[in-house]
Design a protein around this nucleic acid. Structure first.
Lengths: 138, 138
DNA sequence: GTTGAAAGACACCATCC
DNA sequence: GGATGGTGTCTTTCAAC
């Protein structure tokens, strides 16, 4: 991870669709050289994938909630399994702190949010924070 | 946002580097047609950008923390401004709940994390949760 | 890691459905 | 709103250095 690799990552973060030639131009490297570096970054798992950034609100999910979940009755595995069945979860972290997990999910309506939280209750008690806005990206 | 657009988003989420021809093949549309749809999705702001998914731990930041910040002395703007100066923040949400903001940041060492939290104290009181792991993606 | 050449793929446009 | 076909450009890929 030298300075050139950092530049490569910076450029791909801004636009992952540029060609290897264009990327080479931007970081002052030949196409085969930059291609090989990207391949290695993928191989090392530093670059996990090429993807898109989505605006979840504009996709018809105006409600976003961050939920802290504290597991009940030792039902860790049930909780994890339940979590996997949802497609409206943006991330879920196992954390050290007051709660056991912290997750973010999105909903079309408050009714959907209520249903979601209710469904978690057998496994965890929850504390829900609704998202007003995101402070501009970094 | 019909079923085809959802397929387009799904494919680009998996690999944002495929050509418009390949994307067209996957969603059963001609290259110009799929190209136009992607253009519109960008224009509408549903697709915010083409980017990469990074493994922050493998980039030399083994420590990740989720920090809840409750603003002190009405210093909202100072806090927001301070936040913008950091490059180690993954996201920051303005939320409804016990705290005012919830942010995630990454660090090389615990000393860095301590310094970071200390620097926020003039503006907010904080509650820090360290991240053990991420529950597999969705 | 660079260069150069060949083959191929892609984007783009106009046209038509 | 989508399909087709032709053109020019750019990229990729490989070899040799």
């Amino acid at each position: 991870m030298d300075a050139v690799n950092e530049m490569i990552i910076e450029e791909l973060k801004k636009d992952s669709r540029i060609s290897m030639s264009e990327l080479g131009r931007r970081v002052h490297l030949s196409p085969p050289a930059v291609r090989e570096r990207v391949r290695q970054l993928e191989e090392q798992g530093i670059i996990k994938g090429f993807t898109i950034a989505l605006d979840i609100k504009k996709m018809g999910y105006p409600i976003e909630a961050i939920i802290e979940a504290t597991i009940k009755n030792n039902r860790y595995n049930d909780f994890k399994q339940q979590i996997q069945t949802y497609t409206n979860i943006d991330f879920c972290y196992r954390i050290a702190g007051e709660a056991c997990f912290l997750l973010k999910a999105h909903f079309q309506t408050f009714v959907d949010a209520e249903t979601f939280i209710d469904e978690l209750q057998p496994f965890a008690h929850t504390k829900t924070n609704f998202v007003f806005s995101e402070v501009a990206r970094f």
